[in-house]
Design a protein around this nucleic acid. Sequence first.
DNA 1: TGAAAAGTAAACTAGTTAGTGTAAAAATAC
DNA 2: GTATTTTTACACTAACTAGTTTACTTTTCA
Lengths: 202, 202
Amino acid sequence: MTVKVTRSMLKRQAIIDGALSAFQQYGVSDTSMDKIAQTAQVSKRTVYNHFESKEQLVTHIIKEIWRQNILTCDIEYQADMALDVQLAALLKNELDFLSNQNLQELIRVAIGYCLFNPDIFTAEMSEFFEQETALVRWIKQAVSAGRLRQVEPQKAHAQLISLLKGQAFWPQILHQQPVLTNAQIEELTEDTVAFFLAYYQA
Amino acid sequence: MTVKVTRSMLKRQAIIDGALSAFQQYGVSDTSMDKIAQTAQVSKRTVYNHFESKEQLVTHIIKEIWRQNILTCDIEYQADMALDVQLAALLKNELDFLSNQNLQELIRVAIGYCLFNPDIFTAEMSEFFEQETALVRWIKQAVSAGRLRQVEPQKAHAQLISLLKGQAFWPQILHQQPVLTNAQIEELTEDTVAFFLAYYQA
DNA sequence: TGAAAAGTAAACTAGTTAGTGTAAAAATAC
DNA sequence: GTATTTTTACACTAACTAGTTTACTTTTCA
């Protein structure tokens, strides 16, 4: 059942890890292929054997980062449970994800690259942002069960995510605020649940 | 009363404008001093006569961008006017600011640079983010007038700004969404006012 | 064991980069 | 009108860049 790990695969992974580590430290433009090879403890030629160009290596990694940036969560709407408890669990889950320091570093690299290379978005990336999340699904179900007011689920979802990201994501991405503590996550969850349900609960 | 404009000042401004234009197109790292001189229609030596190094030129411009990123608004709390009308005016003002395409391009440059040069923040930049805005002042006054619930004004302010930026700023910065139309700004204002006052109005 | 595949170091190309030195030309100041 | 400041073009350094070539070693795998 264990998959054979070839040396080639190990080298390839070392290159990706090394590149990512260098990108996090210096940004994409200020990371040279020599630096990547050095960081990965690999010959520069090996880098070019695995990736035709710097451009290819970069886009591979950026796409991989966005691919990881999909929240999987299997919390479903339950008819017999209080709304605030359910919503709190969903938001907590989302916040744990957004507050993950490792993810934030990855996204910082992706953003730094995509800001001035917007082409990478349009086609392949948009799918990542348009897919239905567990939170949207939950809102839809709660609305059709008559326990939330009649709203566009996408709009309510956008409001919730804005409230979370505005405190727990963007300030950290910009290095303005440290990553939230568990207590702060708890507080933000409660505040947001109360705020949201005051307006939307049926 | 008109201030004398020397040639030196004109050249200096041309350099700043040229650098900014190049930064917006290519990002800071991928803009060379030769390119800046060329864009500014100025000799490269003149660039170095005005700015000792690329680093100095860049930080000067980045600081200037953040300095402009201060919302000045003279709408004050008025005891005899409906809260929703007042808040709508404040949010509209803020949204017009955030939706300004020119500002978004400036901030994209600043963010692109600051992502991997966080040092520029800590000392000199923090003041820009900590100053009291018209919106905070308004919330404070409305609270002490007993027309909004007792809350930390900073927290309520942060929630409002998160709701606006999540729809009208961050998606545009990341090139995911086009700048909002006037109708969309109108809708976002109304939604946000209703959402906010449902929870906070006394 | 032995051939094929993958990795290595190091030198190399050709282009770019930040920043300097210089001497002439142009604008400014008085 | 002369002295001073500023701008200019251009050549230059020294370092770095993406990517290639070569000659050699190590790993894989049948």
